[in-house]
Design a protein around this nucleic acid. Structure first.
Lengths: 197, 197
DNA sequence: GTCTATACGAGGATAGAC
DNA sequence: GTCTATCCTCGTATAGAC
């Protein structure tokens, strides 16, 4: 129990520090100092520094993979709502799942995606790929139900999802800069309005 | 002249190594070893390691700021071409300016944007902001000339440019992974086709 | 099983000799 | 301008105390 306690503390401190300063800048000594143990004690719980980041990314995969973008609920959802309401509903679901801890991990993954292969694959698969598939099906179903007028529902879906992606990117940069980001959230609804015309 | 020679060599090696491995991982000793001087010699040309990155980012600002996205050429361009041709033409201009050296610097800026304030501001201003303004005017002018049918040319412009942004992001990640990226280039033309319908 | 103490090589950076 | 010598911090491994 002492073991699990220390390990959990180390992980929490690491998530906090990594998200604030970046993985490379944070030292093992800094993490253990915050917990109150010597740096050598960390190696009883983690293989090395990289292992900590690895476990943090696994937490993200677990949370996102379990709960987000279920393909089999689309048909039913679009029976009850029109496309505009359904897209807004999906945005709300997304915000709801974004706990402070998950927001930190999200930031860590964005920060490390260019240097860490696992973080990069999470971005490609979980953040780009799976939502892409999800919204392609959403737009396809809406198209078949005459709820969307376009010649290319798949390309429109990609545009929608990739615009959201860039907005989340911009939001993260402005968040780090300490700028106001409430207007970026508003922009997402603007885009839904444009698409559903 | 010996000074300028060494400084230029150090800068070139730094650009190459930073783009391949990332700023933090590359050591001052590694850079100077490639040039053939001692690590302390580097401090005659640069204040510190961060100063090198700073200068590299300045090179990017200089190149992009001088040549890209001139607002005053839009009216004339759209007189000679329809919107579809003009967007394709702008893409080609962009590819043409992307020399191997600039591609490396581009990658460095993407890698460091979450940790380095100056890189972050370059992304926000030069990569997101200025193209955004440019395409907003393009779509506005096309709208006024009846070359574009929509109720919200500004939002559509943002969607177009932000979709390109995410594509460049995805392209960089797949490039680092050593994956094939030719189909991403094709996707840009698909999106132009969708918008111009 | 978990901790502290300690040591090693490598990192960024500086001072002073040539 | 470039060198050698030096300093402190880093990630990590090991030995031994409880």
């Amino acid at each position: 129990m002492k073991r699990e306690n220390t390990k959990q503390k180390l992980l929490d401190v690491a998530i906090d520090l990594f998200s604030k300063k970046g993985y490379d800048v944070v030292s093992v000594r800094e993490i253990t100092r915050h917990v109150g143990v010597k740096e050598s004690a960390l190696y009883n719980h983690f293989r090395n520094k990289a292992d900590i980041l690895d476990i943090i990314i696994d937490i993200f995969i677990d949370e996102v993979g379990k709960t987000s973008f279920p393909l089999d609920e689309i048909d039913e959802g679009l029976k009850q709502m029109d496309l505009s309401a359904y897209l807004q509903y999906q945005l709300l679901l997304f915000y709801k799942k974004m706990t402070p801890r998950m927001a930190k991990i999200w930031q860590i993954i964005y920060m490390e995606q260019f240097r860490n292969k696992k973080a990069r694959d999470v971005v490609l698969n979980e953040i780009m790929g799976r939502p892409d598939k999800f919204y392609k099906k959403v737009f396809q179903v809406a198209f078949e139900n005459d709820k969307l007028k376009t010649t290319q529902p798949e390309t429109l879906a990609k545009m929608y999802q990739y615009t959201l992606l860039s907005l989340s990117w911009e939001q993260m940069l402005r968040h780090i800069n300490g700028e106001d980001i409430s207007n970026i959230i508003e922009k997402r609804y603007e885009i839904i309005r444009l698409i559903c015309d």
